[in-house]
Amino acid sequence: RLEPYEELMIDCPEGYVGVVMEKLGPRRATMLDMKNPGLGMVRMRFKIPARGLLGYRSEFLTDTRGTGIIHHRFFEYDLWAGPLSGRNRGVMVADREGVVVAYALFNLQERGTMFVQPGDPVYEGMIIAEHVRPGDMDVNATKEKKLTNMRTTAADEMIILEPPRQMTLELALEYIEDDELIEVTPSSVRLRKRLLGATERRKLARSEKRALLEE
């Protein structure tokens, strides 16, 4: 079983060599060469599976704070490098159809990183955020604040939201797990569960767990 490999060339300041190598390890990259001309920049050459590069460019620019240079080209076909490590966090999944409300996001943003913003349409089974912990969580992103006759202070009414993470097609391909899909439209890239209903997902999880116990 073969797969395509890329030759990856990276130029970055010496201080970021460690984080670059740390991030490329789980992507099955193998270092071929490293040169340090002594000018504060290091050049590294890697052999890496083409699938291991999905989503890495933006991560690399973030890790090197925009000071690194990266480019790659086809290298060869070689033996399959094995599975890549998946994400270690769960996701927040919308539990109903509706429109995202700022009040709901304000209460959810402490638990994860949002992929949506107020006014975005959502539906049951759509992934709206990354959870800070392992395991998925069904949430209501359309919940509005209950109106009462009690007056509130200006501080209570102020809602400050973190900007959502913009998900490109490349990032989405790297991000999704086996039970998730990507929905691409002319105006957006959305993530969703393969099974939209929460009940169906729980039934599948129980059946898979039962099958593992029987083995």
Rank of each mutant, 00 (worst) to 15 (best):
R1D: 14
L2S: 15
E3D: 03
Y5L: 13
E7T: 13
E7M: 11
L8M: 01
M9Y: 11
P13M: 05
G15I: 07
G15M: 09
Y16K: 08
K23F: 07
G25H: 12
P26C: 07
R27P: 00
R28S: 10
M31G: 09
L32G: 03
D33A: 04
D33F: 05
M34W: 02
K35V: 06
K35C: 02
P37D: 10
G40T: 09
A50R: 15
A50Q: 14
Y56N: 01
Y56C: 00
Y56R: 10
S58W: 03
F60W: 04
L61F: 14
R65V: 12
G66R: 11
G66A: 10
T67P: 06
R73A: 12
R73N: 13
F75E: 13
A81N: 07
L84A: 10
R87P: 03
R87V: 04
R87I: 07
R89H: 13
R89F: 12
V91K: 04
A94I: 01
D95F: 01
D95W: 03
D95C: 10
R96C: 09
E97N: 10
G98F: 01
V99T: 15
V100E: 01
A102C: 05
A104R: 12
N107C: 08
E110R: 15
E110P: 06
G112H: 06
M114Q: 04
F115K: 01
Q117P: 00
G119Y: 09
D120S: 06
P121K: 10
V122K: 03
V122P: 00
V122N: 00
E124C: 07
E124W: 02
M126E: 09
I127L: 11
I127M: 09
I127Q: 01
E130I: 03
E130C: 07
E130D: 11
H131V: 07
R133G: 02
G135Y: 00
G135L: 06
V139A: 01
A141T: 00
E144F: 00
K145L: 07
K145H: 03
K145A: 14
K146I: 10
T152E: 15
T152H: 14
A154V: 11
E157W: 03
E157N: 14
E157K: 15
I159A: 11
I159L: 13
I159R: 03
P163D: 05
R165Q: 14
Q166D: 14
L169H: 07
E170C: 02
E177R: 14
I182V: 13
E183R: 13
P186R: 05
P186V: 04
S187W: 10
S187P: 00
S188K: 15
V189Y: 02
L195R: 13
L195C: 06
G197Q: 11
G197W: 04
A198D: 00
E200V: 03
R202W: 07
K203G: 09
S207W: 07
L213C: 08
E215D: 08
